[in-house]
Every structure is written in structure tokens, then in C-alpha cells.
């Protein structure tokens, strides 16, 4: 464990908690893409099946359980409890255009052709594009609430910190995982446009960003 990975995990946890609390406190999921949240729940489910097969550390197990729990709680709030506030008309990204190619790629490019490893690979590829429905929805509505932009900032920051973690681990441990690194680079690049808006709009204090 290094400071970049720890900060990355905490940033990820912060994003997940921020979103869950925002929906819970405002009792509304307006402006939130339910599709992205379903994809994240799928990412955690397929990646953390090793909870049943191997124990790495208390930290690892605890965080996985928190991530999975919060992901499903968020999906529940969006599609069940606060269903009336779900903005289905703007959450129209065709997720099958993500899941199918990612599923195929996971079969073609992986470290080991075993069920757990293919599911892990699927999860890594899917996570890199899972935010697209959310970014698409924001571009359609033309605005995002401030709290939603903080959620996206921490979510984007987490994988950027993981990229530094992988540089650190390669240099100090000789460890590197090409699949995770390539997917992580793609994932972080998808946030660049948002990061630019977040920083520039954040300074002007306007409470909504208007992506191009």
C-alpha cells in the first residue's frame, strides 16, 4: 500500500458517499444517471467476487463490502425509493453499446482464461467507460448540480491517483498490470474535459457547469 493508492481509495469512497448522501438528503436523484450507477454496481459485483474465495486484508475486505453496499443502495434509491425523481428522459445512453464490446474484449484480452479472471477483466474494462451515461446526461441537460460535480471530481481523481500508484509500484516493486493501467488511462482521459470545466467554472463560483 502506498499513499497514492490510499488517497485514491479514500477519494473513491468519498465520491460514493457524497452521491449516496446527496440523493438521500435531497430525497431526489435529479441529474443523476441511474444507468451509470447500475454499471458501477455491476463493476463492483464482478470485481469483488474474490471476497468469497480469498482474503487479502481487513482493509481490502471492508472497502469491498462498503463499495458494493453503497453501490446497491444508490441503485435502490434511484430506481425504487426516489423513482419519481429519476430523470429517465435524459438518461438515455445505450449501455448495451458499452457492455457488449467490453464483454467481448474481456474474453479476448485477459491475463488468464478463468471465470474469476475474465469477470475481473470485464469489471476493469467496464469501469473505464461506466461514467459515460452520466457525462452524456449532463451534456444533454446542459448543467450539473454543484454536489454532482464534486462527486465526479473525486471519482475522476481516484483513478488518476491509481495511475500514480502504478508508476510507484512499477518503480519500487516492479509490479505492473497492463490491463488495469490501459483501462485506467482511458478512464481518466474521459474525465479531462470535466476536470477542465470543474476547475475553470469552480473558480468563477457559478453553481452549474455547462459542458460543451
Amino acid at each position: 500500500m502506498n499513499i497514492f493508492r490510499l488517497t485514491g481509495d479514500l477519494s473513491h469512497l468519498a465520491a460514493i458517499i457524497i452521491l449516496l448522501l446527496k440523493i438521500w438528503k435531497t430525497r431526489s436523484c435529479a441529474g443523476i444517471s441511474g444507468k451509470s450507477q447500475v454499471l458501477f454496481a455491476l463493476v463492483f459485483t464482478t470485481r469483488y467476487l474474490d471476497l468469497l474465495t480469498s482474503f487479502i486484508s481487513l482493509y481490502n475486505t471492508t472497502m469491498k463490502i462498503i463499495y458494493i453496499g453503497c453501490a446497491y443502495a444508490t441503485v435502490y434509491l434511484i430506481y425504487m425509493k426516489f423513482k419519481a425523481t429519476y430523470d429517465g428522459n435524459h438518461d438515455t445512453f445505450r449501455v448495451e453499446f458499452l457492455v457488449v464490446p467490453v464483454g467481448g474484449l474481456a474474453f479476448l484480452v485477459n491475463h488468464d482464461f478463468s471465470p474469476l479472471e475474465i469477470l475481473w477483466t470485464f469489471s476493469i474494462y467496464l469501469e473505464s467507460v461506466a461514467i459515460l451515461p452520466q457525462l452524456f446526461m449532463i451534456s444533454k441537460t446542459g448543467e450539473a448540480e454543484t454536489i454532482t460535480t464534486h462527486y465526479l471530481f473525486f471519482l475522476g481523481l481516484y483513478r488518476a491517483l491509481y495511475l500514480i500508484n502504478w508508476i510507484w509500484r512499477f518503480y519500487f516493486e516492479g509490479f505492473f498490470d497492463m490491463i488495469a493501467i490501459v483501462a485506467g488511462v482511458v478512464q481518466t482521459i474521459l474525465y479531462c474535459d470535466f476536470f477542465y470545466l470543474y476547475v475553470t467554472k469552480g473558480e468563477s463560483g457559478s453553481n452549474k457547469i455547462n459542458p460543451a
Binding site: 493508492r5 481509495d9 473513491h12 470485481r47 474474490d50 480469498s54 487479502i56 481490502n60 472497502m63 469491498k64 463499495y67 491475463h111 488468464d112 475481473w120 491509481y162 500508484n165 498490470d177 488495469a180
Partner: peptide
């Protein structure tokens, strides 16, 4: 070919 090294990251 990677060993059965587990994924230790989240």
C-alpha cells in the same frame, strides 16, 4: 502468463 497472483487492489 501471470501466476495465480491475486489482485490486491480495489
Amino acid at each position: 502468463e501471470r501466476s495465480e497472483e491475486r489482485h490486491d487492489e480495489l
